[in-house]
Amino acid sequence: MVPGVLPRAGATNSLVDVAGLRVGHARRVGGGFRTGTTVVLAPAGGAVAGVDVRGAAPGTRETELLDPRNLVERVHAVVLSGGSAFGLGAACGVMSRLADAGVGFPVEGGVVPIVPAAVIFDLGRGGAFRAVPDAALGAAAYDAALGPHAAASPVPSPRRTPAPDGEAAAGGGDGAVACHAGPARGSVGAGTGAMAGGLAGGTGTASAVLPDGTTVAALAVVNAVGSVLDHRDATLAGAAYGLPGEFDHLVPPAPEEAAAWEPADAPSFNTTIGVVATDRTLTKAQCGKLAAVAHDGLARAIRPAHTMTDGDTIFGLATCARPAPGQDTFQDVLAAAADVFSRAVAQAVLAATGRAGAPAYLDVFPSALRSRA
């Protein structure tokens, strides 16, 4: 990296700043549901992929395919979902959509789409234990990713207030599906029912464009038993890695607000999952390393991380639109991967919608929002 030259955020400060990637979210809230699914679609021809699993209680599928020793080189989508192991079924809807479009690994008689997936534990967050994402919700997230305005979807405001009982505005009391696309943040997709150290968790995303034009970006679904706060002043720990201006609207909250914060008993099962991606040409092994270093960013933003009841899993993707990096450039890509994941964690918590038992960050610490006066 050029000494003294900082990265800048991409146009949307999100995963879709890596050209060719598309993101769609679908959620169900009401009627016992509070959960959702997020789909990351690869460009035509797929993306080279790796994975790194650090939590001791993961819920995943197709991760063994991403071992560099194994056959498949590219994936066609990655699914992140609520619903614990039940939510892995959402990937079936994405597979069906891709197969219908003729996208997948060619075999005799057709194609088999390669769709790795990981899930968070959010069972019962809407009241019904088995109200979980299914293949239809996965298909809805896929459709959202293909929407005509997927790369230009508005980013929700970071200021959140508790939603009304039943959350009719979020999809209806009967659990109707609501979809978002592109750089949407907060209580969307797989982050709909997420919690983070007693606060509302959610889906966050961030990007960095390096001085040579390389793009590195991340999407995180934050559902952590660990705290997302700096213990010294109750600021968001991941915000310390923000780019100039990114979190300038935040200040340390008033000491009395920080001292008064006592999170309710944390849920016993958790997990933070996500994707980190670049437009550089990487091997499967390098994508695995990209994911591994992104876990450093996770651990900077959440403490503790990778516990026995977390299933922390990060996928690394390379779209291969730009040439393979030299050693020094790859080091820069890895460093950026850790930082963008930390920022994505902070963005997820900042944009999340508060609710009973899981208040929003700015509802607990209102003084953290810098005065506009």
Rank of each mutant, 00 (worst) to 15 (best):
1 M>D: 13
13 N>T: 05
16 V>I: 10
16 V>A: 02
18 V>S: 04
19 A>F: 13
31 G>Q: 08
37 T>V: 12
47 A>G: 13
50 G>S: 13
53 V>E: 05
62 E>C: 09
63 T>L: 01
64 E>F: 03
79 V>A: 05
86 F>S: 06
98 L>M: 11
100 D>R: 13
108 E>P: 12
110 G>I: 09
117 A>L: 00
127 G>K: 09
129 F>G: 04
130 R>Q: 08
130 R>Y: 11
132 V>W: 01
135 A>P: 02
137 L>C: 10
144 A>N: 14
145 A>I: 09
150 A>I: 02
158 P>I: 06
161 T>V: 14
164 P>W: 12
165 D>A: 15
170 A>D: 04
172 G>A: 12
175 G>A: 06
183 P>V: 07
185 R>C: 14
191 G>H: 11
195 M>L: 15
197 G>F: 03
200 A>R: 12
210 L>N: 12
211 P>L: 14
213 G>M: 08
219 L>F: 04
222 V>N: 03
227 S>V: 03
230 D>K: 07
241 Y>L: 15
242 G>E: 10
246 E>C: 08
250 L>Y: 06
257 E>V: 08
271 T>D: 05
301 A>H: 12
302 I>W: 07
302 I>H: 11
304 P>T: 14
315 F>R: 00
317 L>W: 01
322 R>T: 05
326 G>Q: 06
326 G>A: 12
328 D>H: 15
330 F>Y: 13
330 F>T: 02
330 F>H: 07
337 A>F: 05
339 D>I: 06
345 V>E: 02
347 Q>C: 07
352 A>Q: 06
354 G>R: 00
355 R>N: 09
364 V>G: 01
366 P>M: 10
367 S>W: 03
372 R>W: 05
